[in-house]
Design a protein around this nucleic acid. Structure first.
Length: 488
RNA sequence: CGGGGAGUGGCGCAGCCCGGUAGCGCAUUCGCUUUGGGAGCGAAGGGUCGCAGGUUCAAAUCCUGUCUCCCCGACCA
């Protein structure tokens, strides 16, 4: 069968929604801008969560939980922070309803003295708490992560990429020195890069945000930027060096070895269910979702094929032995024993849900001691020996994981262009899209002008060395080329 | 929040202009035949047409308001 090609036309949005729907990941909720994550979607998120959690623990972090509601006054303590989030907050103003004719209404007598904000992020409530946790240098560092939901009253929403409520993880650390906090920021950036590339098979560019794209209240915002199949960029994760901004705002000090009272240094970092959107738009095709084996809730599905009861019995027995063998090897395998659907239907359904490998077994295979192995990523089918099948599949899953990354990497490289002039920049943006490296003079004015004229933003100033040159717009000096793209 | 489009059985849509009490495809249920790429035939069930108000003898259809979704902008993980 010919390899299917992913839609990259103007109906990319529709394609994306179709994939989400066919894969049973999530659906729109009647509640404005929110989504219902279905069991299939949640299983995927849980796998991502578990892998990340493991990486956090390896780097010395622990999980904790902080309140959903934040007093309004907390939010205003850090000036930049409140400015960044003020326009998109859900605010609790009353504490009860009362029955009236024809329904209920908000009881005006229950107005809160101080309104509560539904957290858009937890820096403020966490730093208010850290004040009490930290007295001495012996209390540092604090390396805490929280898995939670947050709410941002977005103007425009999009399944997984920008919902009013989303699930995420937010790490909040406190350190005695600037160096240690910077190291932590970079370490977590590397954790995100590694997760994106090694688990999601999604290549990313690491770098630092420009001042205008920086997190509200941060000194530096580092990020991983991925490129989707339609040539638009997606910010997939951020790691912030917060300096002493929150320590100042919440008066968090410690007594150091030298007896001096000092302000604490902070970081925060997060990734969200947006990663699921990134995963979909990186790998999926016209047949539906493609999930990298490491994250797939089901890695292998066995589809039995039979006509008569006798055949069914023989094929099922063959399948169950096979299933047990795969499970013993630690492979997440499943046998689709539903007799209410035909094999062709099951093939299509499991493809839409992105299961990396399919095994079809029928009377012929039982007879010959074979199985039919089909890859989701390439649609390649092979009749394979039943002997040593668990090892064959283990290796194949690893191959698929690597191939998916390589395929995505090639796609990204083909959609990445270096330009010298602004005219070339505009032309590439219109005709090709994707990532564009270009010289920029480092001023917010030029950045703003490019954004207004082309809708492209500076995704990041990439890590690493680069040769100096002249800004493509103003001709002024530029230290290095920066990464531009139109973004989600 | 500005511009455009749309809300009609579970899903996708027609009907609306020109008011007369709702229809098609898929899905569902039952029966028989099928089963190595999304089955076929026959029968059945399911909707006060997003919500609220108005006009009218009569509203899915006309009017007003409102909520939600999609697309394009401004804002954003």
């Amino acid at each position: 069968m010919a390899q299917k090609i992913t839609k990259r036309s103007e109906d990319y949005s529709q394609w994306y929604l179709d994939v989400v729907k066919e894969a049973q990941l999530a659906e729109h909720s009647p509640v404005r801008g929110s989504m219902v994550i279905k069991p299939t979607g949640m299983a995927l998120w849980e796998n991502m969560r578990n892998a990340l959690d493991e990486m956090f623990k390896e780097t010395g972090h622990e999980n904790a939980y902080f309140p959903l509601f934040i007093p309004k006054s907390f939010l205003s303590k850090e000036a930049q922070h409140v400015e960044g989030f003020a326009k998109e907050c859900a605010v609790v103003t009353h504490s009860r309803l009362k029955s009236v004719e024809g329904g209920v209404e908000v009881d005006p007598d229950s107005r809160l003295e101080e309104e509560l904000i539904v957290r858009p992020t937890s820096e403020t409530i966490i730093w208010d708490t850290y004040r009490n946790w930290i007295q001495s240098y012996r209390d540092l560092p604090i390396l805490v992560n929280q898995w939670a939901n947050v709410v941002r009253w977005e103007m425009r929403t999009r399944l997984f990429l920008r919902t009013m409520e989303f699930l995420w993880q937010e790490g909040h650390t406190a350190h005695a020195t600037r160096e240690e906090a910077v190291d932590e920021t970079l370490q977590m950036l590397e954790v995100y890069r590694s997760f994106a590339e090694d688990y999601m098979a999604m290549p990313v560019i690491t770098g630092v945000k420009t001042a205008s794209e920086r997190f509200a209240g941060a000194e530096d915002t580092y990020c991983i930027e991925a490129l989707m199949q339609d040539g638009k960029a997606l910010q997939a994760g951020t790691s912030h060096f917060l300096g002493q901004n929150f320590a100042k705002a919440f008066d968090v000090t410690f007594q150091d070895k030298d007896g001096e009272h000092k302000l604490v240094w902070a970081t925060s970092w997060g990734v969200s269910t947006r990663l699921i959107g990134g995963l979909i738009m990186t790998h999926s095709d016209d047949s539906g979702l493609v999930i990298p084996p490491k994250l797939a809730p089901k890695q292998v599905v066995i589809v039995p094929i039979y006509r008569s009861d006798e055949e069914q019995e023989a094929v099922f027995e063959y399948g169950h032995t096979l299933l047990a063998e795969l499970k013993a090897k630690g492979i997440r395998a499943h046998m689709d024993t539903r007799d209410t659907y035909k094999p062709g239907f099951k093939f299509a359904e499991h493809e839409a849900r992105g299961i990396p490998l399919r095994i079809a077994i029928g009377p012929r295979d039982v007879q010959n001691n074979k199985v039919e192995l089909a890859r989701r990523d390439t649609f390649e089918k092979n009749i394979t020996d039943r002997e040593g099948i668990a090892d064959t599949i283990s290796e194949l899953l690893e191959t698929i994981q690597k191939d998916l990354f390589q395929r995505a990497l090639h796609r990204r490289d083909e959609l990445t262009t270096e330009v010298e002039s602004y005219d070339e920049f505009k032309q590439v943006l219109e005709e090709k899209g994707g990532f564009i490296y270009a010289h920029w003079d480092g001023t917010p004015e030029t950045e703003e002008r490019i954004k207004n004229e082309t809708k492209a933003t500076i995704r990041c100033i990439p890590m690493g060395e680069s040769t100096p040159g002249k800004c493509m717009v103003t001709g002024n000096d530029s230290k290095k080329k920066v990464l531009f793209a139109r973004a989600y």
